[in-house]
Amino acid sequence: MTEENLNPEEGESRPEVEEVAQQPSRDPAPSPEGDEPEVAGAAESPEAPGVEAGAGAGADELTVTKMELEERTLDLQRLQAEFLNYKRRVERDRELLRENATYAALTPIIDVLDTIDRAREHEPLEGGFKATAEQLERVVAGLGLVKFGEVGDAFDPTVHEALSHIGTDAEVEVTTCKVIAKAGYKIGDRVVRAAQVLVVDPA
């Protein structure tokens, strides 16, 4: 039982207060030198996965769109080139068709023109025959039929047909057309009939 001390003045007893030894407070151990305390929220949080996925999807769509645009551009250029080639072929075929039709129509007339030339060699044309001959020559010339072959022309096997060699000539340096038996005719660069000639060689 705890002893009670009597207070003579108050006549009351007080319980004896036991002294309790105060223990020193235990502070937390200091952090190692150089370490800084972590601050909540200081580290940046990584981007949300949804944002990265959205950006990647947008880039993929842009790449696909560019590729499709390039493909469509190439297709358009190819179609344009094919159309231009087709147009050139059509124009070339049309010109060839026109030339063939003219060739077929004028070839028989060459014999008539030969007759007119032989008539001129005998005597000048007169009257209605002269007018008809000149009109016919104008018509065929308008259709593109060109007459060629003159005395003195250098012999060219691509446009001349040599019927005979009639000797040599000291005045010529190359084989030369000396006599034109029949004139030649051509349409453009196409020879309808080669000129039939007699030629001489250099002496």
Rank of each mutant, 00 (worst) to 15 (best):
T2S: 14
E3F: 03
E4G: 01
N5I: 01
L6K: 09
N7F: 02
G11Q: 03
S13I: 08
S13C: 02
P15L: 15
A21E: 12
Q22T: 01
Q23H: 09
P24I: 12
P28C: 07
P32C: 06
E36K: 06
A40S: 10
A40Q: 06
G41A: 00
E44I: 00
S45P: 00
P46I: 00
A48C: 10
P49K: 08
G50R: 00
E52F: 14
A53R: 12
G58D: 14
E68A: 05
L69H: 14
R72N: 13
T73G: 00
L74G: 01
L79V: 07
Q80L: 11
L84N: 11
L84C: 09
R89T: 04
R89D: 13
D93H: 15
D93E: 15
D93F: 11
D93P: 07
R94P: 00
A101F: 04
Y103C: 07
T107E: 07
I109N: 03
I109T: 07
I116M: 04
D117F: 04
D117H: 06
R120W: 01
R120M: 11
E121Y: 10
H122L: 12
L125C: 07
G128S: 12
G128W: 08
F129E: 11
K130G: 06
A131T: 00
T132P: 00
E134D: 11
Q135E: 06
L136H: 02
E137A: 05
V140R: 10
A141I: 05
L143H: 10
V146S: 12
V146A: 15
G152A: 02
E161P: 03
A170G: 07
E171A: 05
V172Y: 11
E173L: 12
V174A: 10
T175F: 00
C177D: 14
C177W: 10
K178A: 15
V179G: 05
A181S: 10
K186C: 04
R190K: 13
V191W: 04
